[in-house]
Amino acid sequence: MRDVAASAASTGPRVLPRNDPRQYDDLAGEWWRPDGAFAMLHWLAEARAALVPPATRPDALLVDLGCGAGLLAPHLAGKGYRHVGVDLTRSALVQAAEHGVRVVQGDVTAVPLPSGCADVVSAGELLEHVPAWPRAVAEACRLLRPGGLLVLDTLNDTALARLVAVRIAERLPTVPRGIHDPRLFVDARALVAECARHGVDLRLRGIRPQVGGMLAWLLRRARATRTSGATSTGRAPRIVPTRSTAVLYQGRGIRKG
């Protein structure tokens, strides 16, 4: 009986350190659930894709660093890019490939792609997960051809970001608990300076979920869960600009020729 109890205990959810990449394997079934643990990544992917113009030449390449399960792909449809995704997590890459992404398993601080290959590099909700984020920035800039576009979003290294993104957001059904290590949040001024070192003039703006849409989404989700055990959340909240970059911010920059 003791062995049975021990076996049952071992099959429970494992407790991992903050920002441990193994969390993405544990949450592999959540990626494409619009009401699941990665719901906010869907909203941010749509907002990031809105910064990407249609391709201006045949065979234009977009490199999606930290692509996860390819959530950016539906929002790039019709824009004319070959979409290559780079990520460490194989279980996520399998799903990305199912959504039309050409996948490369690799580290974003040492991307196995040639310099100057990309018309666009996307680094969405990535840098705050990379202990050596300046190396990831250097790689993103290296991959860009002259005139290429860098788009990104990340969390600022502020007390307010730690409060909102960790203490508050991880208690909501839109951000998995333990997914962020606030010690890795990225100072906005340092990021702009690092991009400039590599020839990219990065312009920032603050972003956030639309408050009314977010509250309505949470209420619909809670109601559906309470009444049927399933979820039906209707229209997703929009990500909108805000004056402050103190919590979540978006960047767009062109690599100089």
Rank of each mutant, 00 (worst) to 15 (best):
A165D: 11
E170W: 07
T154A: 00
A165L: 13
R162T: 12
E139I: 08
E170S: 03
P134H: 06
V137Q: 04
L127P: 01
L172A: 10
V186G: 05
V192Y: 03
I168D: 11
P134C: 11
W133F: 09
A159T: 13
H198E: 02
L172G: 13
A140T: 12
P182R: 14
A140G: 14
P182Y: 10
R135S: 14
F185E: 06
W133Y: 09
L143G: 09
T174I: 15
L150E: 04
V130T: 09
A132F: 04
D187G: 13
L127T: 15
L160C: 12
G178D: 09
P182T: 09
T158I: 12
L152D: 09
L150I: 05
P176F: 01
L150Y: 05
F185V: 11
R183M: 13
G148N: 06
T174V: 15
P134R: 04
V192G: 04
V151R: 05
V151L: 12
L150D: 02
D181T: 08
R171F: 03
R197T: 14
V164Y: 03
P134K: 00
R189P: 00
D181N: 15
V151S: 10
D187S: 15
P173Q: 01
I168V: 15
L155I: 15
A132Q: 15
A136G: 08
I168M: 05
A140L: 06
H129W: 04
I168E: 12
R167E: 15
P131Q: 07
A132M: 06
P146E: 07
A138V: 03
A188V: 02
G147L: 02
V166L: 06
L155P: 12
D157C: 09
D187P: 10
R145E: 08
R167H: 15
R162Y: 01
E170F: 01
L191N: 00
H129S: 14
A159V: 15
I168C: 13
H129I: 07
A161W: 01
L144T: 00
A136S: 05
L184Q: 10
T174R: 03
F185I: 07
A188R: 07
D153G: 13
G178W: 08
C141F: 01
A190G: 02
R167W: 14
C141E: 02
A132D: 15
P146N: 03
L155K: 03
L160I: 12
V130P: 10
T154V: 10
A165M: 11
A136E: 11
V164W: 01
L172W: 00
L150V: 06
P134E: 12
P131Y: 05
V175N: 09
V166A: 09
F185R: 11
L143I: 09
A196D: 06
P146Y: 00
V151W: 04
A132E: 15
P182W: 04
L163W: 14
L144P: 03
V175T: 14
A159K: 10
E194S: 10
P131A: 11
R177C: 07
I179M: 10
E139C: 04
A190P: 00
H198I: 09
G148F: 08
L143A: 06
C195N: 07
L149Y: 07
A161R: 01
L127D: 12
R145P: 00
V166H: 00
V192R: 06
A136H: 07
I179H: 10
D187A: 15
T174M: 11
A196P: 00
A193T: 06
R167T: 15
R177D: 02
P182H: 08
A159S: 08
L144F: 00
V192N: 02
L160W: 08
L149R: 11
A159E: 09
V175I: 10
